[in-house]
Amino acid sequence: MIDDLYSARILRLAAELPHAGRLAAPEGTGERVARLCGSRATVDVTLDEVGRVRDFAQDVKACALGQAAAGVVGQVAIGASLAEITEAQAATVAMLKSGGEGPVGRFEGLRALRQVADYPARHASTLVALDALLEAVEAAQSAGTR
């Protein structure tokens, strides 16, 4: 059963981590840690004139599921609005915890992690990158940069 969780697609996403590293001058930073397993994501962003993510970097130390989710987030974060990120985060939580279908639109790739719903101990690690992105964008907007 656990082998189904770590499918070839999940492992491929985990191996491809776009925008790895940190930004030199972020406008907002978010950091999340999954207490149960220690998976951690730190996300830096800058925003454009309308509040969408202009530049993005992530430093992720996580299990394969956290890395896979970060891989999806890294592919689509640039250009995302706070509303899109908030909707994706809520839809991902619903997918993991209450049988929801998962995000649509730009973050739809997170649906690849739908089977994680059957493993509650893995939920937090699956969410660290997306939660850190949301926190970083909120921090940038709160700082009055946009």
Rank of each mutant, 00 (worst) to 15 (best):
R111F: 07
S81G: 07
E87Q: 11
R52K: 01
L13P: 01
A14G: 02
Y119V: 07
G74Y: 04
L96R: 09
T86R: 13
G30I: 01
D4N: 13
L36H: 10
F56C: 07
E84D: 11
Q67C: 10
A124N: 10
G51F: 10
R12N: 08
L36M: 13
I85C: 01
G100F: 10
G105L: 03
L36P: 08
A83N: 08
A83I: 09
L17Q: 15
A24S: 15
E27K: 06
V93F: 06
I2S: 09
R114A: 15
E27V: 00
G28R: 02
F107N: 05
S125E: 15
D55K: 05
V53L: 05
E101P: 13
S81I: 01
F107K: 07
V104E: 13
V104L: 03
A91F: 02
R35P: 12
R111A: 07
E49P: 11
A62I: 08
V33A: 01
L5D: 03
G105C: 07
A57P: 05
Q58P: 01
Q75K: 14
R35A: 15
G21K: 13
R114C: 04
R40H: 14
V76T: 07
A8F: 12
T42G: 04
I85T: 00
G100N: 10
A57D: 00
A24T: 15
A24R: 15
A83C: 03
Q58M: 12
F56I: 10
S98E: 14
E87I: 02
A117P: 02
T86K: 08
A91P: 09
L127G: 03
K97L: 08
Q58L: 01
A70F: 04
R122P: 11
V93H: 08
A124R: 11
G71N: 03
A83F: 06
A24Q: 15
T29S: 10
A24V: 14
I85H: 02
V53G: 13
R111L: 02
V60C: 06
E108C: 07
A80S: 15
A20R: 15
D118R: 15
R9S: 12
V93I: 13
D59V: 04
G102W: 09
G105T: 03
A64Y: 02
D118K: 14
T92W: 00
L96N: 12
S39F: 02
A121S: 09
R22L: 05
L17F: 05
A64M: 09
D55M: 00
E108G: 13
E108S: 14
Q89M: 04
K61L: 08
L11H: 11
F107T: 10
L113I: 09
